[in-house]
Structures are given as C-alpha cells and as structure tokens.
Amino acid sequence: MTVVKKSEKIVTHIVLALGSVVMLYPFVFAVLGTFLSLEEFYSVGFLPLPTSLDYVFDNFATLFRRSDIWPAIGMTLARTAWYSLIVGFTSVMGGYVFAKVNFKGKSVAFYLLMSSMMVPGVALLIPQYLMMARFPLVGGNGLDGMGGSGLLNNWAVLFVTGCFSAYNIFLLRQAFTGIGNEYKEAAEVDGAGFFQTIFTIYLPMVKPVLAVIFINLFIGQWNDYLFPMIFLSERADLMPIGVVSVNISNDYLLAGGSSGLGLVNYPLVMAISIVMMLPPVAVYIAFQKYFVTGLTLGGVKS
C-alpha cells in the first residue's frame, strides 16, 4: 500500500513539475535572453544560454536611458496612488454603510450599485470614448460638448473613470457584516464619531480585504493597456507603462518601429519584458495568501 502511495506521489510531483516548467518557461527565457548580445540571440534555441555577463548590464542600461520609460512608470504609480485612495475610500464608506447603517432605500441603492457588475467593461469602451470626447467645458468643448476633443488626450482621462468598484464595496460589506455591532455601539457610548468609528475601529479589522483591493488595483494599473492606448492615442508622453512597454518592445521588435529609431534587438525586448513583469510578480509572491482570499471571497459562495 505504502509503495503504491509513494509511486503516486512521485508521479504527482513529475506532472506538477512539468507543468511548472511550462508556466515558467517564458519568464526563464526572457531573463536569460537579457544576458545575450543581439548576434548571440540570432542563434538562440529553446533556451538562450548566457556565455558572459558582458551584455546584461548594457541591455538594461540602454533601456533605462530611454526618455519614455520613467515618465510612464511615474504615471502608473500616480494612477495607482489615486485609485488606491479613491476606490479605497468609496469601498470602505460604501461597504460600511451597507453593512452597518440602516437607511431608507438601502436595498434599492445596494442592488442598483451591484447591477453595475453585470455590465462588462468591454461593452462600455466605445460609449465612454464618445462621452470623453464630448465632455462639456473641457478640452475646447462648449457646454453642449461640441467644438473640441474633451477629455481625450488629456491626462485627466486616466483618472476620472472607475472611481468606485461595486465588487470592492461588496467585499467590504461582507467583511463589515461579519464583524459584530458591539464595537459600533461601544464606540457610540464612548462618544466616537461616525468616521472615527469606521477608520479607527472597523478598518483595522478588515486589513486583508484592503490588501486584496490594493494588490488588484496595482496589478490592474501596471498592466493597463487598451484603455490608455485608445483614450490617449495622441499623447505618447502621458501613457502609462502598460502601453509604453509595448511601444518600447515594438521599437526593438520591428526594425524602425514606432519611434523610427529601432533596430531589431530581441535582448532589449526581453529586458523590457522583465521590467514589465517583475513588479506584479513580486507583489503577487509577497502577498499571495491574499490573492486566494480575493479570488474566492466574493466569487463563489460555498
């Protein structure tokens, strides 16, 4: 019996390990690729095997000397900070009020907001674009929204949409509901105000949910591609890293790529890939227990 079990375990490990190789292959390939010179890369097989450490520094130095990479990272961090604050605030307030405050019309308000989860983001891409283009009183537009380009190609467009998330409100409502009312009542007896009760008593108890929200926001912002590509199409200088990383890799992927200065240079495509993939992977590995919580918390009630 134990012999069978042992062989079963070995097979399990072999299958999972082979799968892990498949999962990690592109990352390993990219990391090793940054160690090669362009000439070496032309003869690369399944794995780029580095022969020296001469090129890796130059490859990353060339990349980081580009004028477009730092503003892009800055823009991405600014968006992450803004959305962490605003989505964090609306989610905490909304979640708390739906969990702990009894007001007239609460369930109507709740279902109205939750209904927004049924509308897929892809379906709103075009109308949001039209709306931004016709946003009144900005970008040369009149009160009727005509005359200019509105919020398109304006940095503000990266900050106005998605300031609340029904899903996050739901997550925090669940978390707050799970905490008893006695804290709230005790706080009232002690004369603590509304905000004080939320932010000093209840908030520390839902830190894991806040971590989930923050981590997902960071990764979402870091990888954001389609939205900024469309809404800032004429402002390459304002693009976040998700779009700029593709522009940079195009420069090296296609001779004379988008900015016209490129030579095919695959090691640099690998270098920008590493820069692009490292932060979300690092955040994920550091906080991975929260990920499982986030995936299963609101998704399926079991």
């Binding site: 390939f29 690729g33 591609y225 990383s245 495509v269 692009m276 992977v281 991975q288």
Partner: peptide, 27 residues
C-alpha cells in the same frame, strides 16, 4: 509536499501583462 509552491507558480502568468507576453511570443 510543495503544494503552496506549485499553486504560486501556476498563478504567476495570471498577474503579468498580456501585451508583454504577446511581445515575447512575437520574438
């Protein structure tokens, strides 16, 4: 043994940018 390791490894592709993965495949 090593369940947590495997779960971590298999989830890594989920958190990276689809655009940059596509560029690696282009190479």
């Amino acid at each position: 043994r090593g369940k947590t390791f495997y779960r971590t490894v298999y989830y890594i592709p989920v958190v990276v940018s689809m655009a940059i993965v596509s560029q690696i495949v282009n190479v």
